[in-house]
Design a protein around this nucleic acid. Sequence first.
DNA 1: ACCTGAACACCGTTCAAGT
DNA 2: ACCTGAACACCGTTCAAGT
Lengths: 216, 216
Amino acid sequence: MARAHAAADAAADSGKTRYHHGDLKNALQAAASALIAQRGAEAVSLREISQAAGVSHAAAYRHYADKQALLADLAEAGFRELIAINRRTVAATAGGPAAQLQACGRAYVRFGVRQPQLLQLMFGAAITDWQAHPSLAGASAALADTLSDVVKAGQASGALREGDVGDLTLTAWSLVHGLALLMAGRRIPQAAVDAAFVRRASQRCVALLIDGLGRR
Amino acid sequence: MARAHAAADAAADSGKTRYHHGDLKNALQAAASALIAQRGAEAVSLREISQAAGVSHAAAYRHYADKQALLADLAEAGFRELIAINRRTVAATAGGPAAQLQACGRAYVRFGVRQPQLLQLMFGAAITDWQAHPSLAGASAALADTLSDVVKAGQASGALREGDVGDLTLTAWSLVHGLALLMAGRRIPQAAVDAAFVRRASQRCVALLIDGLGRR
DNA sequence: ACCTGAACACCGTTCAAGT
DNA sequence: ACCTGAACACCGTTCAAGT
C-alpha cells in the first residue's frame, strides 16, 4: 500500500508516463486480482494483466518467473488474508470458544462466497506445482495452524470434547471448507446464495457439527 | 462400451486404419479421461486429446461444440459414477443407516483421492458456464438428491436427529466434500495421503460429525 | 456423414535491443 | 535496472476441401 502510494506520487510529480513504471509488481498484483475476481484465474491471460497494468506483455517477467509465480503470489495473499480474518474474528468475538468457532466458520464461508475465484485459486488446480512455491505452502500451513489454535482453545475451555486436536481440526476445517466451496461454486441446488443464506447456513451447519448429527 | 467394442471389431475386420474412425466420441472421452487424470483438465489441450485418439486436431468438433462441452461430458460422467458408488455403498452396507452414512462418506473421500483431477473438474472452475450444460447441472443435482436420501433414511430409522433434511444433508455433504478436496489437493499438512490414512481420517471425521464436537 | 489441413487470432515465454 | 518489440512454439476454433 505504502509503496503503491509513493509510486502514484512519483507519477504525479513527473506529470507524464515514464518508461520505468516504478511500482509494476504492485500494479500487476492489483490488475491480476481484479481480473481474476471477475473471470477466474484460468480465463485471464498474463498478456491482458500486463495491458491492464499499462506495460508491454513481456514486462511481467522482470518481476515474476512465469504466470504460475504471479498466481502463487495472489494465492498466498489470499491465505494471509484468511488467516488475518480468522485472528480478527477470534479477537472480536465475545461469548467464549464455542461462539468463536461459530464466528470463524461463518467468516471462512463468507470469505469464500465473497471471493469465489480467489478461493478456487487457493484450493483449486490452477497452481500446478506447489513445491515450486514454498512460501505459498507455508501460508497454507499457517492457515491450518490458525484453525488448530481455535480448536485447542475450545478444548482448553471445556467447550469442545477431548480428543486428538488434528482430528477435531480436520473435521471442523473440512466442514467449513466444503460449505464454502459448495456455496462459492453454486453447487447447492435449492437456494439463492445471498448474505442471509450464508449466515443462516453456516450458523446451522456449525451448530449441527458441535451438537452432532446423531440422535440425542 | 458396446459401441466401443463394435468399433474395435469393425477395425479388426477391415484390418487397417479407416478414414472414418467409427467411434470417435468414445475414443475422445477415453483419451481425455486418461490425460486429465495424469495432468489435470487445465493442462491438457484439445489438440493432444485428438492426437491421442488418433485423429486430426479439428475432428473433435464433429462431436463436441467446443472444449468446454467435452469437459462437461467428462464431469457429468464423474457425477454419475459418484452417484452409482453411493447407491452401491448403501446397498452393500449392513449395520443400519449410521453405518451407511459412514460408508458413503468414506466412499466419497476415496473417490476424490483416487481421481483428484476428476474431482477438481467436477467442482472446480474449469467449466465456466454451467448453464450451457443442463445435463451436467442435472447430474450434480442428482448427487445432492442421493445424499439427501441417505440422510432421510437415517432420520427415519432414528439413527439421526430430527430436523430440516436440507440442513443435515448440507452439513454432511460439506464435511465429506471438504475432506475429499483437502485430501485430493494435498492440503493437509501432517500426513501422507495413503489408503490407510483415507480410511482412518474419513472414519474419524464422520464419527465426530455424528457424535458432535461439543462437550459430552 | 465424418474427417483433414490450412488459416486466424490468440497465448506463454524468450531475448536482443532500447531507455 | 527495467521495459519493449519481434520471434517462437503453442492453443482453440473455423471452414473449405477431401473421402
